[in-house]
C-alpha cells in the first residue's frame, strides 16, 4: 500500500516544486528585462537566484531520493544560498562606488501599446548620472596617466 503510494507522492511533490521553480526563474528573467534601472533589475535577478534556483534543486532532490546525487544537489543548494547574496552585494557595491545613481520615486510602466518606448526612456534616464561620474573621474585618471 505505502510502497505503491510513495512513487506517486514523490512524482507529485517533485513536479510541483519544479513547476514553481521554473515559474520563478522565468519571472525573474522577465523582470530583468522589464525593470527600468540597474538597481531595480538587481531585485529581479534575486528572485531567480534565491527561490527559483532553490525550488528547482529541491525538486531534483526529491526525484533523486536518498542517494549520493541528492547529497551533491544539497551542496549545490548550499553554495547558491551562500554565494548569490555575496555576488549581488559585490555588483551593487561596485556600481554604487562608481557613482551610478539609482532612479528613486514612483515608476510606472508606459501603456501596453507603448511597450517599445520604455527602453528608450530607460537609456535616456541613466546616462546623465554616468556622464556626471565620467566628467568627475576623468580628470584624475588623465592626470595620473600623464604623470606616469
Amino acid at each position: 500500500m505505502i510502497a505503491e503510494f510513495l512513487p506517486v507522492a514523490q512524482m507529485l511533490i517533485a513536479s510541483v516544486l519544479m513547476l514553481a521553480g521554473v515559474f520563478f526563474v522565468i519571472a525573474g528573467a522577465i523582470g530583468v528585462i522589464r525593470l527600468p534601472d540597474f538597481y531595480t533589475r538587481m531585485h529581479a535577478a534575486g528572485v531567480t537566484d534565491t527561490l527559483g534556483a532553490e525550488l528547482i534543486i529541491f525538486g531534483l532532490i526529491v526525484q533523486a531520493g536518498i542517494s549520493q546525487t541528492s547529497l551533491k544537489l544539497v551542496f549545490i543548494a548550499f553554495f547558491l544560498f551562500l554565494t548569490s547574496p555575496t555576488a549581488t552585494h559585490a555588483v551593487v557595491g561596485a556600481a554604487w562606488q562608481s557613482g551610478l545613481k539609482p532612479k528613486l520615486g514612483k515608476y510606472k510602466a508606459p501603456a501596453p501599446g507603448e511597450a517599445k518606448a520604455k527602453p528608450k526612456t530607460k537609456s535616456k534616464a541613466t546616462p546623465p548620472a554616468k556622464s556626471k561620474t565620467k566628467s568627475k573621474r576623468k580628470s584624475p585618471v588623465k592626470t595620473t596617466r600623464t604623470k606616469k
Binding site: F24, A27, G28, I30, G31, R34, L35, D37, Y39, T40, H43, A44, G46, V47, T50, L51, E54, P102, K103, L104, G105, K106, Y107, K108, A109, P112
Partner: peptide
C-alpha cells in the same frame, strides 16, 4: 526561507503586473 518566499511573491507580483507600479527607495 519563509521570508524569502513571502517577499519573492511580492516582487513577482510587482514585476509581472502590466503597469508595473514600483517605487524604488533608499
Amino acid at each position: 526561507f519563509v521570508q524569502i518566499t513571502k517577499s519573492n511573491i511580492d516582487v513577482v507580483k510587482a514585476v509581472l503586473s502590466p503597469d508595473m507600479e514600483i517605487s524604488p527607495k533608499l
